[in-house]
Structure formats: structure tokens, C-alpha cells
Amino acid sequence: MFPVAGLGTRFLPATKAMPKEMLPVVDRPLIQYAVDEAREAGIEHFVFVTGRNKGVIEDHFDKQFELEATLAARGKAAALGELSRDLPSAGRTSFTRQQEPLGLGHAVWCARDIVGDNPFALLLPDMLFQSKPGVLKQMMDAYDDVGGNVIAVEEVPMQDVSSYGVVARGAGTDRSFAISGMVEKPKPDMAPSNLIISGRYILQPQVFDLISTQTKGAGGEIQLTDAMLKLLETQRFTGVKYAGRSFDCGSKVGFLTANIAFALDRDDVRDDFLTAVDGLGLLSTPSRRSA
């Protein structure tokens, strides 16, 4: 499941007519990276919870006959092959509408009839990862061992925990452990740890029933964390401290950093990119802060 109904206000005016999930990191939109991660983990059906002006996401995961015909006529076999590889098979995508911005918990609930009584993976496209294997694949490996619910976590400086959902750590290893509690955006002196929830979840379908009866929480929204806390009373939650690096592409700095990191990771881009950056003189010029 991919919640993609957000307004993307932090990227206005770029997102006035284009969904933030379609912003490109190098040459692939954010939502494509999330779908690629899910496919690597073995996911076969992709559910998108959309909102107004998000039709371009549905178009992105559809065939474009005119474009493909043009590429074929021009002998662009590599580009044509890439489009074909990115395209989910027929019947493997579903789209449902979140008609009001009532929070992540509400977005998840909007997909209840599509998901049904099945466990599901939830991926927030704003969070982009560099990891091999992908973060969801690492979580699926843990799920195969322990079942229940699985959440990807990472460490941040304690002074930054007030911006995130934070988990309390129970028994286990450094990489995989029981979660004994969760709190949304705690003050540093009230946080149970510096392990934050990183935008990747594997959840059991009972979470839908809990969301359907809960009231609005922090920020006047229906919070997924509140439903997970209730589910924690009866079901196991496992935290997976994934191996890799994250980029919060919901922020401008995170998005720009991701573009640099992914460009440097591309054999076809890296050298020319470094030459272009060197040509700007930035690597040898003192920063404004140090001037």
C-alpha cells in the first residue's frame, strides 16, 4: 500500500499541478523507487491511496502506446525495455481515493476493502532508501521468522526525536527486536529511545478495525501510531534496524541530498556529475557559513 494523497505543500509551486510522489530523483520518480522496493521484496499487488490531482500516478503505471511506438520507431530499445520492466502486470494495481486529508491512519483505512483480511506492507514514498537488499526485503526476512507486525526503525540524535514516531525497545538483537511501546513525536526527555519509525511497515489486517473506531489524535488527524498501540496489546511488533541509508524526501534538503547520493551511485552519471559540480567551483570555495 502506498499513501499518495498528500498535498506536497512544502514543494510548492512545483507540486501545484504535479504530485510530490512524481518528483524525480535523478530520472525516476519517488513513487517508482517505492514500487521497485516492494517488487524486490516479493509484493505482487500494489494499492495506491490517492487524492485529487493524482491521476498522473495512475498514468505512470499504465502503458503509453504513443510513447512506446515512438521509442520503437527511433530504435530506443534501452528506454523501451526500461519502461516495460517498470510496468506492473495487468491487474496488479488498484487505486482508491482518500477524499479528505485526515491523516495517515485514515489513508490506510481507505484501502481496507482492497486489502481485505490479508497482512500488507505499507510504504511511505517520501522516505527513500539506499540499501541492498531493500528495506522491505530486510523486513520480510524478519517477518518470515517471527510473523506479526514489523516496523523499520533507524537511530537519530536524541534531540531530533520530537519530529518522529519513536519506539521502545524490548528483547532481541541489535538488528531485530521486540517493540514494547510507541509514542508520536515525544520531547527528547520523554522519548523511550532514539529509534524512529522510518516509513516502512508490515501490518496485520486487524489494524483496520482499530482505525475505524478511533478518534482523532495528534494534529487533529487519525494517527496510524494510535491504532498500532492498540494492536500492540494483543499482537507482536518487531523492530528491524535496517542496514542502509535513508533520505526524507518530504523535505527540500532531504530531496536534494537524495539526488546527489543517487547520482553518485549511478555509473552512467557519476563522472559527468562530479565534473559538472567541480566546474561550479563549490568544492574549493569556502561556504557562506565559514566565510
Rank of each mutant, 00 (worst) to 15 (best):
G147D: 08
M158N: 11
V146M: 04
N118Q: 14
G134S: 15
A142N: 06
A121Y: 07
D141M: 12
F120D: 04
A142D: 03
L122F: 02
P157C: 10
A111L: 05
G147Y: 06
S131Y: 08
A121M: 10
V166W: 05
V115N: 04
V167M: 03
L122R: 00
G165M: 09
D117V: 01
M158I: 15
L122T: 00
D141Y: 02
Y164T: 08
L123T: 09
G147R: 04
M139Q: 07
M140F: 10
A121D: 06
M158E: 11
A142R: 04
A142E: 09
D144K: 14
E154D: 11
L128H: 11
D126T: 11
V146G: 00
S131W: 07
N149L: 03
M158G: 05
L136C: 06
P157N: 13
M127S: 07
Y143P: 02
L122K: 00
N149A: 05
L123V: 15
D117K: 13
A111N: 02
S131M: 09
S131R: 08
D145R: 15
S163M: 13
D160P: 01
G116A: 10
A152I: 08
I114H: 04
P125V: 05
V161Q: 11
M158L: 15
V150Y: 00
G116C: 08
E154S: 13
P133L: 12
E154F: 02
L128S: 12
V115T: 04
Q159S: 14
P119Y: 06
N118K: 15
L128W: 00
V135Q: 08
G148F: 04
V153T: 13
P133C: 13
A142T: 12
V115M: 03
D145W: 00
Y143K: 05
Y164M: 09
K137N: 12
I151G: 00
F129Q: 04
Q138P: 08
L124P: 01
S162A: 14
R112H: 13
G134Y: 06
V150F: 01
M140A: 07
A121N: 09
Q130D: 11
R112G: 01
M127I: 07
